[in-house]
Design a protein around this nucleic acid. Structure first.
Length: 823
RNA sequence: GCGGAGUUGCCGGAGUGGUCAAACGGGGUAGGUUUAGGACCUAUUGGCUUAGUGCCUACAAAGGUUCGAAUCCUUUACUCCGCACCA
């Protein structure tokens, strides 16, 4: 055993690079665009978990390339963003060189893993030649009235010192700082009208070949619901209130406005002011995390609303359980028929009114929560029923009443049917440095003036001070400019864009990554897009994957492209965890580095191991024994190739290899790499000592996507001068597949196992006689059995007159079960 | 609470109506080889039993459908992952 896999890896990585064999070229071949979500280049580099992510894609790409597709497989870097800025500050460095270093390191590591990216197509979002186009899009969106600025309650992370999008707030804490509660601030921010596309984003989800999970997460996030908007009059002002239950309008006994509502104080009367302020103070002191278990609480504001349907005066409360930016931030409360309202009303002794009654039904069908007659006692009655206490609507079934009441309100111009979404407009401005500057100039006399297109990019100035407020404001030379309109003194917008803006269209830039005139050439993008296979984790289900879809639709409507969806297929890879089953992290000390593994076992073994044990969409644990198993397998193959002799292939191995080609092709296509590896093991296990070059070559081709280096080496050893990586994927010859061989293998191994068992039970026997049914004689091939078992075994058909059978064992023979006699 | 995925041998995991005591790997055990260890090779790895091909138990639990179920249906339990007071 004298193969130096390290040397082999370097040799082939170098050759691939020198010959530029993975560079995509003009070709008549069918295009295929494979993409992994581009990484944020962290200073700590890639660990084995990243290697798994990218190996999954690389295996697929190598397979597709061999299948004859013109594959575009680029890699780039999501270089801007908070983590880089924070890490750089911590390291006392400027984010720019800091990130550049990290990128260099990433590229080096990626090459080491044998990933077959086309590096001529790379991009980095920190490159002004890239973010210039972010600014370009911003201006286009502005023209198209898709961008606006508004003062609104926003999520503010005191640690990031910036505003966060809704998508970046998880369970009340910052997605980057689990220990940091998000505060609500009222600030002027830039918004993108994602809601304008809510309908299409929702409708087209179903048509995507994406994991069901992601699709339902997106649907849930967009959260469409149909309802009625009802105008309640408060202090002479009309307030639109959204409800899905207009049928319960007569049962409204109070209103609740969100405690976070910006106009809350305008509803609070002088008398109640103290109470409300006390309540708000208390709310602020409870941590966001505890809010889950928080009881519904509220305080009376002192104001009243008028119910448009019956003119009743309804007290308005402020409550902690109403979402401020859904609907209008105020709800009509019907304690009789909504559990939350019921809880609230019970607590504050507010009147509960029954307006829906169960239709007469046999008592047996009453659920345990209902009392006879549908009286509301401990719980709200939320089932179907007929209206009562609702004047002219009495007796109508409640689902019908929804329409009737809405119609009634509409006629009086007091309400209308509406559709509500949970999805909000995307607030994308950030008060941080390391992002794309928003190309806006604030002029005292002209207002907000867009930077003219010809002046793009607005480059990030290098000299800024970190720590206090918005860093860009600390560079006076940069911040102070002349107004493009009136040439008077003005200042630049100091906010930068959320980095999700960068990643919302990067996949469109790859095919034309060097274009300095346009973000991309339309024909090129039309040629390569949509991405045929996108690969990434689930964590982006409601962020990047929604934004990217939104961008695609907007750019389509602005005429930059002609398709609707950016990613035809999506694959969610699983996570590689440490040997302890925990997420890899420095603090846990369970991080495995590709360099170290490569040194010990070679990167091919690592690649193989990563996809061997479990389906790539499931989480796996790193295991030292596991990779040793893959390492042994590779060593065995290398040894085998050193000793194999050439001869015409026999039908048995021909059958095996053709069948394996079929199976592995199918498995690779569906990302069932673990099953493909099993078939590979079985194939190499069954390769005979002497066989044809063709069989060997085909076997190497099948293994190549998993272990590209060692297979290239062996391919060359077979006398080939070209790259295996550029070879054509084998096609199975179905005619050569013969199921007989498999049946035979099975039968023989069972027989041998039986013989072995008898040997265990009885000692001092040497000669073995086996009796088989005449029609199974062919199956139990004596020469083959002897070869496999390494014993001398005599096979007789039971009807063989000349057989040796002193104890008449042959009469025990049954179909598929030969009789055995030892002596 | 809602939605999604899952529960298979010592472990990771295949299998989705009969060909299943269950692929493949890891681990264990026994033997071979080796100066020893490692590496490698071979056998074995649910229980009982026996010159094997037999019986029993088993695919979270309990029921059901079926000639026949790990595989289909129902209920229950547990695990994981999303969303979560969206009116």
């Amino acid at each position: 055993m004298d193969f130096d896999f390290k040397k082999i890896e370097q040799k082939w990585q170098k050759r691939w690079e020198n010959k530029k064999i993975f560079q995509v070229k003009e070709s008549k071949k069918k295009k295929f665009y494979v993409l992994e979500m581009f990484p944020y280049p962290s200073a700590s580099g890639l660990h084995m978990g990243h290697a798994l992510n990218y190996t999954i894609g690389d295996i697929y790409v190598r397979f597709k390339r061999m299948q004859g597709f013109n594959v575009l497989y680029p890699m780039g870097f999501d270089a801007l963003g908070l983590p880089a800025e924070n890490a750089a500050i911590k390291a006392g460095e400027h984010p720019k060189p800091f990130t550049e270093k990290a990128i260099k390191n990433y590229v080096k590591q990626m090459k080491l893993i044998g990933l077959s990216y086309d590096w001529s197509k790379t991009l980095s979002t920190m490159d002004p030649e890239y973010y210039k186009w972010n600014q370009f899009w911003f201006l286009k969106f502005l023209e198209a009235d898709l961008v606006y600025r508004k003062k609104a309650p926003v999520n503010w992370c005191p640690k990031c010192k910036t505003v966060l999008a809704n998508e970046q707030v998880q369970k009340g804490v910052c997605w980057r700082h689990e220990d940091t509660e998000v505060e609500i601030k009222h600030l002027d921010q830039w918004y993108l009208k994602t809601t304008k596309y809510a309908d299409e984003l929702l409708d087209k989800v179903d048509g995507l070949e994406w994991p069901q999970k992601i699709k339902s997460m997106q649907k849930n996030w967009i959260g469409k619901s149909h309802g009625t908007e009802i105008l309640f009059e408060i202090e002479g002002k009309k307030w639109p209130i959204f409800t899905t239950r207009p049928d319960t309008l007569f049962g409204v006994t109070f209103m609740v406005i969100s405690a976070q509502h910006s106009e809350l104080m305008s509803l609070v009367t002088e008398k109640q002011k103290k109470e409300v302020e006390k309540f708000l103070k208390k709310l602020k002191s409870t941590s966001e995390k505890d809010i889950e278990e928080l009881e519904k609480e509220g305080v009376f504001t002192g104001s009243y609303a008028r119910n448009p349907i019956n003119g009743e005066e309804i007290p308005i409360w402020a409550g902690n359980f109403v979402v401020a930016d859904y609907g209008s931030g105020m709800v009509m409360a019907v304690p009789g028929h909504d559990q939350r309202d019921f809880d609230f009303a019970s607590k504050y002794k507010i009147n509960i009114k029954e307006v829906i009654k169960q239709e007469a039904k046999p008592i047996a069908s009453l659920s345990k929560n209902q009392t006879k007659g549908g009286n509301v006692k401990e719980k709200a009655y939320i089932q179907e029923g007929v209206l009562v206490n609702s004047k002219e609507f009495n007796g109508i079934k409640n689902d019908k009443a929804k329409e009737k009441i809405t119609e009634f309100l509409k006629k009086k111009k007091l309400g209308k049917k509406v559709i509500q979404y949970k999805l909000r407009d995307w607030g994308f401005s950030r008060q941080r440095y390391w992002g794309t500057p928003i190309p806006i100039i604030n002029c005292g006399s002209c207002g907000l003036v867009p930077v003219p297109e010809k002046d793009l990019p607005v480059k990030l100035p290098e000299k800024v001070k970190f720590g206090k407020g918005n860093p860009l404001e600390t560079n006076e030379k940069w911040i102070n400019v002349k107004c493009p309109k009136c040439k008077g003194d003005a200042t630049r917008e100091p906010d930068t864009m959320d980095t999700f803006f960068d990643s919302s269209w990067y996949f469109l830039r790859y095919p034309d990554n060097k274009n300095s005139k346009k973000p991309f050439d339309k024909t090129l993008v039309q040629k390569w897009l949509p991405v045929d296979q996108y690969i990434g984790g689930t964590e982006h289900a409601c962020m990047h994957l929604i934004y990217a879809r939104f961008f695609t639709k907007v750019l389509r409507d602005l005429g930059f492209l002609d398709f609707d969806e950016p990613f035809t297929k999506l694959f969610n890879q699983g996570m590689l965890k440490g040997h302890d089953g925990e997420k890899m992290s420095k603090s846990k000390g369970n991080v495995v580095l590709p360099e170290e593994v490569s040194k010990k076992y070679g990167i091919d073994a690592a690649r193989l191991f990563l996809v061997s044990n479990s389906s790539p969409d499931k989480d796996i644990d790193w295991s030292e024994e596991g990779i040793q198993g893959s390492f042994k397998f590779i060593k065995k193959i290398v040894n085998y190739f050193e000793e194999v002799q050439f001869e015409k292939a026999d039908a048995r191995i021909e059958s095996k290899i053709n069948k394996t080609i079929l199976e592995i092709t199918e498995y690779l296509e569906n990302f069932k790499y673990n099953l493909a590896v099993i078939k590979l093991r079985e194939l190499f296990e069954s390769l005979p000592e002497k066989t044809s070059k063709e069989v060997l070559e085909n076997s190497l081709k099948l293994l190549n996507p998993f272990c590209p280096h060692i297979t290239e080496e062996l391919w060359e050893k077979l006398g080939n001068k070209n790259f295996l990586s550029l070879e054509k994927w084998s096609k199975a010859n179905k005619k050569k597949i013969n199921e007989f061989f498999e049946k035979q293998d099975l039968a023989i191994s069972k027989l041998i196992s039986d013989i072995n068992q008898i040997f265990k039970l009885v000692k001092n026997k040497e000669k073995i006689y086996v009796y088989v049914l005449p029609n199974e004689k062919e199956l139990y091939d004596e020469a083959l059995i002897n070869k496999i078992s390494g014993r001398k075994i005599s096979i007789f058909a039971v009807n063989d007159k000349t057989k040796y059978d002193p104890s008449n064992m042959s009469k025990k023979t049954k179909p598929g079960r030969p009789a055995i006699y030892l002596e």
